[in-house]
Simulated assay, not measured.
Amino acid sequence: MNYRTLGKTGFNISEIALGTWQVGGRWGDPFNNANADKIINTAIDAGVNFIDTADVYSDGQSEAAVARVVKARKEEVYIATKCGRQIQPHTAVGYTPERLTKYVEESLSNMQLDTIDLIQLHCPPTEVYQRPEIFETFERLKEQGKIRNLGVSVELVEEGLMAMQYSNVASIQVIFNMFRLKPSEQLFSKAKENNVGLIARVPLASGLLTGKMNLETTFSPEDHRTFNRQGEAFDKGETFSGVDFQLGLEAVEELKRLFPGQEPLAAWALRWILMFPEVSTVIPGASRPDQVLSNLAVANLPALTAEQMKGVQQVYDKFIKPEVHSLW
């Protein structure tokens, strides 16, 4: 496993980490603690020392599972969680210092911890980034010893740039993958300039970039890939990175031609992200232990060639950029 520094936190974290949106089972399935424990232990066994969760993942069960396993291990493993998405309707006016403080305390209770390594605002509305009192709230929580660092998870590049006006923002979590190239244009250089860590989320575009899907692929009714393709429940960009499913499949076939051989496209999609030195870590999810191992095998892949990097850009420009580039 290779490790990179997560911005101002100073944490030396695994460049492939673990996202836990679906760690207790596939999207829409009931949470399975035994399966979650196996997945998390498999990751730590292989050198993962950074795990990302959120209070809304399975109503706090994901947080509890992550902390339970980490506390049973001897290795130092950093836990990052998120808050804010419990606010309904999810509008800026719902974000108050009192409410956010309550959410942090509930996460501490869920995890039976005294301190959270990294708490992240969970894709708040853009207007929240114009409210200094929200970010000052986390300074008080830090002084109280309840958190060590503050980060933000964003939908828009613009939001990431706005977040960096606050000196206590140590990391930015953003969708970045072969179907979402915009963050590399401006956000990455600004993050480096401000010593802000970058966490690449949705690295496989909700599974599109595994190369295993086709037009006959179906998902359960409770899976966001069924009910959120047009943003019916939350930001459309969270599902297939906002790319039309059929268009994405066409682009995937072009990408496969760039990477002939035995390795699946998913592995190359993750390796592509690691070609950007500004990225601190990538957080693919897993619903089975073998998926964790498959993700971690990326460390053994060679760097992409200049021709392959150019080819990914050309596929993006041809299929994806006209549809999504201006949206996020």
Rank of each mutant, 00 (worst) to 15 (best):
L208N: 07
L150H: 09
T137H: 05
E254V: 00
P322Y: 03
L304H: 07
L270W: 00
S280T: 12
M162T: 04
E76L: 11
E158L: 13
G160M: 06
I16E: 07
A46E: 13
G151N: 10
G151R: 03
P322Q: 06
P132Q: 09
L6C: 11
E323I: 04
F188A: 09
E307W: 00
L209T: 06
T126Y: 14
L181K: 10
P277V: 00
K256W: 08
Q130K: 15
T281G: 06
R4E: 00
F276D: 03
N35K: 15
T305F: 00
T239G: 03
I79M: 07
R201K: 13
D223P: 04
N177Y: 09
Q120M: 13
C83G: 09
K310I: 00
R85L: 12
A46S: 14
R271D: 11
F227I: 02
I134S: 08
H90N: 14
V157D: 11
G25T: 12
I283D: 00
A54P: 14
A297Q: 09
K182Q: 12
T210H: 04
N33D: 15
Q144W: 07
V282K: 00
N33K: 10
G151P: 06
Y95D: 03
N168K: 11
F135Y: 12
F219I: 08
D117R: 09
T81A: 05
P264T: 03
I116L: 15
V56M: 13
L209G: 08
S62W: 12
K38V: 14
V196K: 02
A163V: 05
M164P: 05
M275Q: 12
Q144H: 01
Q308E: 06
E193N: 07
E105R: 15
L121M: 02
S167A: 14
N41C: 06
S294D: 14
H122K: 10
V48G: 15
A43V: 13
E143V: 04
E15S: 12
G28N: 06
K321Y: 04
F135K: 13
A67R: 08
R288L: 09
L187C: 07
A200C: 01
K142A: 10
E158T: 14
L265E: 11
K310Q: 13
Q313K: 04
N228F: 07
E143I: 05
H224G: 01
Q112K: 15
F245T: 00
L265R: 07
K74S: 13
L187H: 07
V292S: 11
C123M: 12
T101S: 14
H90V: 09
T137K: 03
V66Y: 11
L274V: 01
W328K: 01
A297S: 15
C123W: 12
I134T: 04
V23C: 07
G145L: 00
V315F: 03
A205L: 08
E158D: 15
I116Q: 10
T218Q: 10
F240W: 05
N32E: 10
L204I: 13
P322N: 02
A46L: 09
I119S: 08
L255C: 02
R140L: 14
H90C: 07
E278T: 06
P284T: 13
L181P: 01
Q22G: 04
L141Q: 01
D37S: 12
E75S: 09
T115L: 08
L6D: 09
N214I: 06
